[in-house]
Amino acid sequence: MAVESGPGIPPSALGARHPNFGRLIRDEATDTVVCHVCGRAFRSLGAHIRVHDMTAAEYRREFGLLRTRALSARSLSRQQSRTRLAGYRASEETQTRFEAGRAMARSGELARRRWNTDAQRRPDSEELRQARRASLDAGRRTQTRAAGERTAAALRAQGFTDLEQALRTVYADQQHSIEDTARILAIGRNPVRRLLTEYGIPIRPSGQNSATGRRARVQLNDRAAAERVGAQDIRVWLRERTAEGATLRELAAATGRSIPWVAARTGAR
């Protein structure tokens, strides 16, 4: 029997066309779904929407719903799903008929064909767009929260109480580069630049090297070379290879650095 309204149905859903576009309206209290056209609630809209001269496919397109959206109450959808599954399991003929489709699904062919159909090239439904936006927003919130936790942990490890204090100490006082400041405080380089501007901390011009900055770059290059050859200390590794008879050219090729760079660390002339 149709229900004119019920608990959980927003007043805006009644008597107006296109309410809640892109979302199936449910009355959880009565386990029914609400017609977007007339605002009446039913266990299933499949038969009802014929009075509005619409098919199920036309209804979904009209109101921005997923093409696979069941137009029925949750309990009815679950019951129908169980019935179909039981029928499938009881029929060898049905299972054989669906075997080709299952094989295509396993191989990925079914997905490829799906994306190549004309129907797939139609604009996405509003419901799908909303679901994608919600997923993207949730992912961004998770990333932001994780980044904040990494920065907070880095600040605690360095003994800082707030981010501005940390930036002034590491970048301005200790004269670390923006890259090293970002690494020490677990922040991206672009956010470091933005935060320096927000806190009124002058950004050093490109090419202006401090002694600390030069030392930091030397250490960074040394770490990269050590990681490349799997060594703990690149200088020790270079001296050991030199003692074994390796040439400067061979060591330069192994570390990915220049011959003068290798010579400076081995004491060769």
Rank of each mutant, 00 (worst) to 15 (best):
I9Q: 14
P11S: 09
P11R: 14
S12L: 08
A13F: 10
F21L: 13
D27G: 09
E28V: 12
A29R: 11
V34G: 04
C35M: 12
C35E: 12
V37I: 08
A41V: 01
R43T: 08
S44F: 05
L45I: 06
L45S: 04
D53G: 02
Y59Q: 05
L65Q: 13
R82Q: 10
R82W: 10
T83I: 02
Y88L: 14
T96L: 13
A100D: 15
A103E: 15
A105H: 13
R112W: 12
R114T: 07
W115Q: 10
A119Y: 08
A131L: 08
A131F: 01
A138M: 03
T144S: 11
R145Y: 06
G148S: 11
A154E: 01
Q158W: 07
D162P: 04
D162A: 11
E164Q: 14
R168C: 02
R168T: 03
R168A: 11
A172L: 05
E179K: 13
A182F: 10
P191S: 02
R194H: 11
E198H: 05
A211V: 11
T212M: 09
R214W: 07
N221H: 10
R223E: 15
G230R: 06
G230H: 06
A231C: 03
D233M: 00
I234H: 05
R239S: 05
R241T: 02
E244Y: 01
T247M: 08
A263C: 07
A264S: 14
R269M: 00
